[in-house]
Design a protein around this nucleic acid. Structure first.
Lengths: 200, 200
DNA sequence: TAAATTAGCGCACACTTGTTCGCTAGCGCA
DNA sequence: TGCGCTAGCGAACAAGTGTGCGCTAATTTA
């Protein structure tokens, strides 16, 4: 194995260890460097060979989680093109993501209102990405104006994230109910926005 | 000064000190007992004369913040009765609360997705309260069915909280823009929900 | 093959944390 | 007036933290 490869492998071990520590009881700021090092199977001091700070690791985690989220979006879009309602498909895809990558989503959720300004900014950036892409999609696939599409997309994304926050700790049955509620609420927004098309 | 009075005064000093520590860089779980004691001007060990845990203090803080929020709601309702749009008045009142009681709102925001299940539950309880009262108000003042009113109220509250999360760190000018966006989004929801009245 | 680079380690240091244990000073009741 | 209660304190302890320093072993380069 290469020297670079080995280093990347260790780096990956650190990242994975950190993600695994981020269960429902831990946040980035409450995870210590030594703890991560222990979980990754390296000495505390070796951590510095890969990251300057614990904060640098944190930003990396946010980026990775955001990337996973963007991949989810593409997946949802491709499913929509293959048929099925936009809203239903998106919500289902999102809920699957929340379940399958709960720690990643929890990270975004928690750091969105967390104590580190840098982390908050990073998460907000990811969410803006999310909103923008949905807004563009909406503007291209409906009669909504750019401004209206933006308003609707923002409202929808916020609602979806808020629902995801509750879904993450819920049972599958509860989650199904929440998903149905969310779908109805998104339809209300869609209907409400379309009303303003004639007036704009 | 009474002995009881003195004890209450110290208790208040602890609570206020804790609130003041909860600025944009600190969360409940990152505030230490010793830190609170230091800020309150007492010895670390004296803390135990008033609270069993740091957690017990945390729950007290959530309760106090929730109470302030409920008072806000009453204030908003009274203003609506005195004239002015429901949505505009509510949003303005809410934004004022976010500014005037930023640390209290930050607490609710942060612990809503925080690491302590007990704190999370406490915050969710407060938000449910919020949703229920808005839902009742809506059911009484509009033609919406109970179910629809509930859906709308939930969506609105989630949106408002989400907007508040961004507003808390924004400049007054930004906040004004955000408030206007929020108002438009709430109108969209209101319009969309009213559409379903005829179909229900 | 010889030299240079570097991932990883152990040790050490100075701090901070929560909590226990006696002790004291003074208020409130009898 | 005298006695009990108790809010508050200081010292102490074990445990955990981030990080600097010098070393080793092995890979890469020359």
């Amino acid at each position: 194995m290469n020297r670079q490869q080995q280093k990347l492998k260790t780096r990956r071990a650190i990242i994975d260890a950190a993600f695994n520590l981020l269960d429902e009881q831990r946040s980035l700021s409450s995870v210590s460097l030594r703890e991560v090092a222990r979980a990754a199977g390296i000495a505390p001091t070796s951590f510095y060979r890969h990251f300057k700070d614990i904060d640098e690791l944190g930003l990396t985690l946010v980026d990775e989680a955001g990337l996973a989220l963007r991949q989810l979006m593409r997946q949802a879009r491709s499913r929509i093109d293959a048929g099925g309602g936009v809203i239903t498909t998106s919500v289902n895809t999102f809920m699957e993501f929340v379940v399958a990558n709960s720690n990643e989503f929890r990270l975004l959720l928690r750091e969105h209102s967390g104590t580190s300004p840098a982390f908050r900014a990073a998460v907000i950036r990811e969410i803006q990405h999310f909103i923008e892409e949905l807004s563009d999609y909406t503007a291209n696939h409906t009669e909504l104006s750019g401004n209206l599409a933006s308003l609707q997309a923002e409202a929808m994304v916020r609602l979806v994230f808020s629902a995801g926050a509750e879904a993450i700790d819920a049972s599958p049955a509860q989650r199904e109910i929440q998903a149905q509620r969310l779908i109805q609420q998104l339809r209300i927004i869609s209907k409400g926005a379309s009303f303003y098309v004639s007036k704009a």
